[in-house]
């Protein structure tokens, strides 16, 4: 079992650096350095890459508690906040890219998107739910909010469902990929429900 010291000195920096790689790839591609090529439609590549990594980090975040239960070890929880903040980071890049590069801050386009297009509304709702979780992720906020912090952070479940829905809805034809992510989310949620049924009253 890794000690706290090992997690802090090795595990966290390694996971942190690895988590930055997709972002580094996008930045290098956008700046045209390092031979990274974002393809013929770089705005779309940034949009899709940031979006899918936001979802992946959400699912990774949600895997940490089941991983703790499965291994009986505490270290997975050490990574939960970092992974959650990466989910937020990639979601923020996804949204900023949409606003700035895709829509060029043209509110004649953005407002109809947010009011008329359900898949964008669903994505925006998920981001609005993720924002307070990122803000209150610090130890100080956690202490200040007390038990309400846990209640607030349960938003991660509905918001990840919204993210899967957002992904599903924008696919033109083949839903295999969103289906795979939705099944992973369903199993993670299923595990949690099964466990909370089995051990009613136990804190997660």
């Amino acid at each position: 079992m890794p000690s706290l010291r090992q997690v802090r000195l090795i595990g966290k920096p390694v996971v942190f650096t690895a988590s930055l790689l997709p972002l580094a790839w996008l930045v290098a591609g956008a700046a045209g350095v390092g031979g990274v090529d974002l393809g013929v439609n770089p705005v779309e590549t940034i949009q899709d890459t940031a979006g899918i990594w936001a979802l992946r980090f959400l699912l990774l975040t949600l895997s940490m508690t089941p991983l703790r239960h499965a291994t009986g070890q505490a270290w997975p929880l050490q990574f939960r906040r970092m992974l959650g903040l990466f989910a937020f980071t990639y979601a923020a890049v996804h949204f900023a890219n949409y606003l700035a590069l895709d829509r060029a801050f043209d509110f004649m386009e953005i407002i109809p998107d947010l009011t008329k297009r359900p898949f964008i509304m669903v994505g925006a709702a998920a981001l609005l739910m993720l924002l307070p979780l990122a803000i209150t992720s610090t130890a100080g906020w956690r202490r200040r909010l007390g038990p309400r912090w846990i209640a607030l952070h349960r938003l991660v479940y509905p918001l990840t469902i919204l993210v899967c829905w957002h992904f599903w809805w924008q696919v033109k034809k083949d839903v295999t990929e969103p289906l795979v992510y939705s099944l992973i989310l369903a199993s993670l949620l299923g595990l949690r429900m099964w466990r909370s049924r089995r051990k009613t009253g136990m804190l997660t």
Partner: peptide, 12 residues
């Protein structure tokens, strides 16, 4: 991380 997110726009 949060700063890096802002950097994408500048790089673009």
């Amino acid at each position: 991380v949060l700063r890096a997110a802002g950097f994408v726009g500048a790089a673009a």
